[in-house]
């Protein structure tokens, strides 16, 4: 690890001022569970770190508002996961956090940091000798002729097929959540769905945030569909693993008929992936094993398999279908 300077921001403005314009090697640190990990792998080499954990006004969970749930960017994963009202009214959000990482990590990791976690692609994390356009633009993509069992089926390009690994963002995308960010020119609002970029020809640019922009809060529009929701996560072991496939779904039912459905999938795409085609398949239909499965197929309709990951097309479709049946029980 290289020597770096460390400062604690006193105010949000202070934080933004310290990072914006200071160059790519200056960054915020919240819980540090992503950043320190990548520093130890020599993938992030900051020379200046601005600690934002002292910013008290970013550390709140507000579920009581009229139209929105509001989470400060520094709210801890464990606190949001365990919040009784969230667990009750938005189980998909609570479960997306419960089923992520481990209790120890959730106890320190923040929502803002969680959204910005980076891919688990082994060729990216493994460093030399693996070719990786994300780590070393122009070097190639080792994954596409290699072991891509865990790589993306949706949203990839010939430059990169790395999965966006986070769980929370998938649930947030299903609920049309937004984030407020503060930059040197002031505050703006971004849909969570518009936060992460597909790799295209520049996989090293992962988000639409500008240099020095600080995530202040996450806002989730309130909806009664929240109760009939779930985050269903399938992985290689029962805990402490990233998704092979996941689905965040929420339902608005009229008896057995779907009035409205929200479906987003995780672990399968290069960014949190809202599956609108799947939602449309269900709208106005009776929800059954068969229609749930049709929705699952629609969600994966555009999937492009690589060498070892085609099984996750079927797995993804079944995950969506099972998630719909779980949510149905809660409607």
């Amino acid at each position: 690890m290289q020597t770096f300077s460390y400062t604690r921001a006193e105010t949000v403005e202070d934080a933004v001022r310290s990072v914006a314009g200071a160059g790519p090697r200056t960054c915020f640190i919240a819980g540090g569970t992503t950043l320190y990990d990548l520093m130890k792998l020599n993938l992030e080499t900051p020379n200046k770190i601005v600690d934002i954990t002292g910013l008290r006004d970013l550390n709140h969970i507000d579920a009581g508002g009229h139209s929105e749930l509001v989470f400060g960017a520094l709210a801890r994963m464990s606190d949001v996961a365990a919040h009784p009202q969230i667990a009750d009214e938005y189980p998909a959000i609570s479960e997306s956090l419960w089923r992520a990482a481990s209790q120890q990590l959730r106890n320190v990791a923040t929502l803002g940091g969680n959204l910005l976690q980076r891919t688990r692609c082994v060729y990216f994390r493994g460093g030399e000798p693996f070719a990786c356009n994300k780590r070393d633009p122009g070097s190639g993509c080792a994954a596409q002729q290699g072991n891509d069992r865990g790589h993306a089926l949706l949203g990839g390009s010939s430059s990169c097929v790395a999965v966006y690994p986070g769980d929370l963002a998938v649930a947030l995308v299903a609920f049309d959540a937004k984030i407020d960010v503060l930059g040197v020119t002031g505050e703006r609002t971004i849909a969570v769905e518009a936060l992460h970029r597909e790799p295209g020809t520049s996989p090293n640019v992962e988000t639409t945030l500008k240099s020095g922009e600080l995530i202040l809060r996450v806002r989730v529009p309130k909806t009664t569909m929240g109760r009939a929701s779930t985050y269903h996560k399938i992985r290689d072991r029962e805990s402490y693993a990233f998704a092979l496939a996941s689905a965040a779904v929420a339902l608005d039912m009229d008896g057995d008929t779907v009035r409205d459905a929200r479906i987003a999938i995780g672990g399968l795409a290069t960014r949190p992936w809202r599956a609108r085609a799947a939602e449309q398949v269900l709208a106005g239909k009776t929800l059954s094993q068969r229609t749930a499965r049709q929705a699952g197929d629609a969600a994966l309709h555009e999937a492009k398999p690589g060498r070892n990951n085609s099984f996750r097309i079927e797995l993804g479709a079944r995950t969506v279908a099972d998630a719909l049946m779980i949510a149905r029980q809660r409607a």
Binding site: G126, G146, R237
Partner: peptide
């Protein structure tokens, strides 16, 4: 059900060289 050290024949050595990718069972399993 889980453990396997993966090889990419282009690079030699083992690929999934950490505890996240070399999948050992956890208590919940």
């Amino acid at each position: 059900l889980r453990e396997s050290s993966e090889v990419d024949p282009r690079y030699g050595g083992f690929l999934n060289a950490d505890l996240a990718d070399y999948v050992l069972p956890v208590n919940a399993d």
